[in-house]
Design a protein around this nucleic acid. Structure first.
Length: 436
RNA sequence: GGUGAGGUGGCUGAGUGGUCUAAAGCGCCGGUUUGCUAAACCGGUGUACGGGUUAAACCGUACCGAGGGUUCAAAUCCCUCCCUCACCGCCA
């Protein structure tokens, strides 16, 4: 694999080096909300940055000398005169420049590398602490009452012959599932339903992107370099299987300067998602709560920084709409600083109730990344002031399929083992809304 | 996979080692003229980093697909890679 560096321009990393330079204490305080260990990293970056700037001044002074002298040499030679002494003197300057440039390149890379490993600063409204500090924002619907003991989805699914774990294990290995018959059809119906709602009612443009992703894109949205172990990579090419459509959708505009009136951009896509779940071995091994491949409809927004928190609330409502339509009880959780993803400034999870496994399961995670991803991928817009500014990016699942499927089976189950599906699926189903 | 042609500013497009400090045109912004509009004319119009400033102005460096190299000096010469287009081969 080639090195994980796009360019040595240190401004391309997640937190602005200038922010660290000018507000080191605020950055330390914000990052410490996630983990106190980041304070040391901030100090180290500041030190490197100072050294780096000293060298920039040195090398640019020399380059200026060279440029001036070279111009003079050109003029002397064009008059047919001898310039060999000036050329010899510049040879020495050229060597010095080469040495300093090399040193500078190394320092740039080092600063860049360290910046890429810093997570985003949590928004002020994010509660400090670990998972226990997560805050329930609201609930919708309520738990269904059963006159019998509800079964988990793996029993329901295998009894009905719509989920096939053995077959998938044979083809691939553990942690995969194969859908059969009405199971496959339900998967397809849900994808259709969600894409229709988001494109027709919520104003998203449908995209069907590639599922193989290059390194630059994976760095852009923040999966690399820190989380390489969570991704499936290809053996013969520097490509990764998309862990979420967030990656291709957001990177569609990497290295672009958008017009202000193009914002907000709203994309949605259905894609399969591939995750190694490297840190989760032995967790949720039963059924398809945690699988290495699952389908998902994803929502992505690229917006003006002034509107990103309004857009986050909208995004959350867009995702919740799917659960309203399917009549599934859920709760919305505001994640604490310690529980949030690496790039998020603020994140809500939507958790749907699954009676068979007697637990709430996350089906959507809606995050505002502010300029974290935009800075990594150099995604800007030209503002009314004529200057370029970083966009804010957001994404949320709208929603993840495997767990939604689980919720539908477990909530829709009848005493006789059949499943009654919500009316909203009717246009996508055909026949009566029962899996038997 | 093979062969060939390409990649230059928002766009078109010239430029094959030294006034390239990137021509020209279009577009865009401002101005002049003008019943209005249009036209004409004049001026301006990239990005990033560093220095500088209360802030600007301003100064410097880099950038002609990307990265290396040769040279006092590279859009220009050499090497590697990426992408686009055309044709051939293979293939759903």
């Amino acid at each position: 694999m080639p090195p994980l560096l796009l360019r040595v321009n240190s401004s391309a990393a997640m937190l602005d080096i200038k922010l660290i330079r000018e507000n080191a204490d605020a950055v330390k305080k914000g990052l410490s909300k996630r983990d106190p260990a980041f304070a040391g990293a901030v100090d180290s970056i500041r030190k490197l940055d100072e050294d780096r700037r000293r060298i920039i001044v040195e090398t640019e002074t020399l380059k200026n000398q060279r440029n001036v002298a070279s111009r003079e040499i050109g003029q002397i030679k064009s008059k047919g005169q001898d310039a060999s002494s000036a050329m010899a003197a510049m040879k020495k300057v050229g060597d010095d420049i080469a040495t300093l440039d090399q040193k500078l390149r190394e320092m740039d890379e080092k600063v860049h590398r360290e910046l890429l490993l810093l997570p985003n600063l949590p928004h002020d409204s994010v509660p400090a602490g670990d998972g226990l500090a997560n805050r329930e924002i609201r609930t919708w619907g309520k738990k269904r009452k059963f006159e019998f003991k509800p079964k988990p989805h793996w029993e329901l699914g295998e009894n009905l012959g719509i989920l096939d774990f053995k077959g998938a294990a044979k083809i691939t290995g553990s942690g995969f599932v194969s859908f059969r018959k009405q199971g496959a059809r339900l998967e397809r119906a849900l994808i259709q339903l969600m894409l229709d709602i988001h494109t027709r009612d919520h104003g998203y443009m449908e995209i069907s992107p590639p599922y193989l992703i290059n390194e630059a894109s994976m760095i852009g949205t923040g999966q690399l370099p820190k989380f390489a172990v969570d991704m499936y990579g290809l053996k013969d090419d520097p490509l990764y299987l998309a862990p979420t459509a967030e990656v291709p959708l957001t990177n569609l505009h990497r290295e672009e300067i958008l017009k202000e009136e193009q914002l907000p951009i709203r994309y949605c896509a259905y894609t399969p998602c591939f995750r190694r779940e490297a840190g989760s071995a032995g967790k949720d091994t039963r059924g398809m709560i945690r699988v290495h491949q699952f389908d998902k409809v994803e929502l992505v927004k690229i917006v003006h920084p002034g509107h990103s928190y309004d857009e986050l609330e909208q995004l959350l409502l867009n995702a919740e709409t799917i659960l309203h339509i399917l009549n599934l009880h859920y709760r919305v959780i505001l994640l604490s600083s310690g529980d949030m993803g690496f790039g998020a400034a603020k994140c809500y999870d939507i958790e749907v109730w699954c009676p068979g496994i007697d637990a709430y399961q996350e089906v959507s995670s809606c995050s505002n990344f502010e300029a974290f991803q935009a800075r990594r991928m150099n995604l800007r817009y030209k503002g009314g002031d004529g200057k370029n500014h970083f966009c804010h990016t957001l994404n949320g699942s709208g929603t993840a399929l495997a767990r939604l499927f689980i919720a539908l089976l477990e909530n829709g189950q009848q005493a006789d083992g059949t499943i009654v599906l919500p009316d909203a699926l009717k246009p996508y189903w055909g026949g009566d809304l029962v899996i038997r």
